[in-house]
C-alpha cells in the first residue's frame, strides 16, 4: 500500500487587497477611506498525493497554483481548511518538517547574488546540518548531473538564467528532501535549458522516488514529467487525472492533415470540418472525434489525397480550451467578492 504524503482538505486562502483608484483626487481620498476587495486565491481544495508521485498543477495565471504550493511550504497561512505534508502541518514551520522538503521558484532566487554558488551551498550545509562527506558527495553528484561543476566558483550574478536555475535546483536538493515543490522552474529558459532541467528532474525523481509537485506553463514540462495532472482555475480543482484523460475528456476533436496529389486544395473542404490552415499542397481540417473515420472516408472518395495524418490537437490548445470552458462557467458566480473596509 502506498502512503499519502500530501493530504489537503478544504484548503482556502483569501487576501484583502486595497483597490487603488486612478487619479490624484482618488488617491488622496484613499488616504482616509479605502476600498478593499477580497481575492479568493484558493477556494477549498481537496487533494491527496501519494509517495513518489509527480503531480503537475496546471491553470491560468492567478488560478491559485502557486498559492497552494506556498501553503504547502508553510510560507503563508491559510484562511481555512487543513493540510498535512509528511504528517506535518506546514504553516507551523517545524524544523522537523522544514528539513524534509524543498521549494524552488523560477521567479525568485535564494542564492547570494554577489557570491559564488559554492558559498551559498556551504551555508545550506550548516543550516541543514549536513554531514560534510555526504554534502560533498551530494553536491558533486547534482552539479555533475546538471553539468555546472565548473561554474561553482563564479559569482551567481555572472551566471546565465539557465545556469542560475540549475544552481538553485542544486541548492534546494542538497539536503535530500523527500518532498519537492517546483514553481515554474523553467520559466524564461531557452529550449535547450528547459529540456536539460526536465531531463534532470525526470531522472532525479525516478531514482530517489521523491514526491514532487510542479506548476508550469510549459506543457512540454508536464508531458515529459507528470503522469498526474491537476487543473486549477479560480482557486478550485477542475480536473484531476492523467494527461490521456484530458485528451479523452476535453480533446473533442482531431486534426486531419491532408496532402493533395495535384497540389490544389479543393474549395469545398469546409463542408467536412473547420479548415485550420491551407498551405498547398497541405491542408488541415478540424473534425469531431466521433466523425473522424466517416469524414475521412468521404474526403478520400472525393479528392486525390496522397497522404493523411490524424492527430490530437496540440496539448497547449486543449488545455487552453479547458481553461476557457471553465472560465465561462465560473464567470457567473464571480471571481471577486467586493467588500468595504476602513
Amino acid at each position: 500500500m502506498t502512503m499519502a504524503v500530501v493530504e489537503i482538505e478544504s484548503l482556502a486562502k483569501s487576501y484583502r487587497v486595497y483597490q487603488k483608484a486612478e487619479g490624484l483626487a482618488a488617491s488622496v481620498a484613499g488616504l482616509f477611506h479605502r476600498k478593499y476587495r477580497t481575492v479568493e486565491a484558493v477556494r477549498g481544495i481537496d487533494l491527496t498525493v501519494e509517495a513518489g508521485e509527480f503531480v503537475a498543477f496546471l491553470g491560468p495565471n492567478g488560478a491559485g497554483k502557486t498559492t497552494t504550493l506556498k501553503l504547502l511550504s508553510g510560507v503563508i497561512n491559510p484562511t481555512s481548511g487543513t493540510a498535512r505534508v509528511l504528517g506535518h502541518v506546514p504553516w507551523r514551520r517545524e524544523n522537523a518538517y522544514r528539513r524534509r522538503f524543498a521549494l524552488v521558484m523560477g521567479q525568485k532566487n535564494q542564492l547570494w547574488w554577489d557570491l559564488p554558488a559554492a558559498e551559498s551551498f556551504r551555508l545550506h550545509q550548516q543550516i541543514y546540518r549536513i554531514d560534510p562527506a555526504e554534502f560533498d558527495r551530494t553536491r558533486d553528484e547534482l552539479t555533475g548531473m546538471l553539468a555546472i561543476r565548473n561554474l561553482l566558483s563564479q559569482p551567481v550574478r555572472e551566471l546565465s538564467l539557465g545556469e542560475r536555475m540549475k544552481m538553485e535546483l542544486t541548492a534546494a536538493l542538497l539536503h535530500k528532501p523527500d518532498v519537492l515543490f517546483l514553481d515554474e522552474p523553467t520559466i524564461g529558459l531557452d529550449v535547450v535549458a528547459q529540456y536539460k532541467i526536465q531531463d534532470f528532474l525526470k531522472h532525479y525523481q525516478r531514482e530517489r522516488g521523491i514526491t514532487t509537485l510542479l506548476t508550469s506553463h510549459y506543457m512540454k514540462d508536464v508531458a515529459a514529467l507528470c503522469r498526474r495532472v491537476v487543473i486549477i482555475t479560480h482557486g478550485r480543482i477542475m480536473f484531476d487525472g492523467s494527461l490521456a484523460q484530458i485528451v479523452d475528456r476535453f480533446g473533442g476533436h482531431k486534426v486531419i492533415t491532408l496532402l493533395f496529389a495535384d497540389g490544389h486544395i479543393p474549395g469545398d473542404l469546409g463542408v467536412y470540418g473547420e479548415v485550420i490552415s491551407e498551405e498547398p499542397p497541405r491542408a488541415k481540417v478540424r473534425v469531431d472525434r466521433g466523425d473522424v473515420t466517416a469524414t475521412l472516408g468521404r474526403i478520400l472518395q472525393q479528392h486525390p489525397v496522397v497522404d493523411v495524418n490524424v492527430e490530437d490537437p496540440p496539448l497547449e490548445e486543449m488545455i487552453a480550451e479547458v481553461f476557457s470552458q471553465v472560465d465561462e462557467s465560473a464567470g457567473k458566480d464571480g471571481e471577486l467578492v467586493v467588500g468595504r473596509g476602513g
Binding site: 506556498k70 511550504s73 508553510g74 510560507v75 514551520r93 524544523n95 522537523a96 522544514r98 528539513r99 522538503f101 524543498a102 521549494l103 521558484m105 525568485k108 532566487n109 535564494q110 543550516i127 541543514y128
Partner: peptide
C-alpha cells in the same frame, strides 16, 4: 516587498535569527 522572505521561512533554523 519582493517576496523573497519565502526562502528564509523554509529554512530549518530560527527565522528571526536568520
Amino acid at each position: 516587498r519582493t517576496g523573497t522572505l519565502d526562502f528564509a521561512l523554509l529554512k530549518p533554523i530560527d527565522t528571526q535569527f536568520l
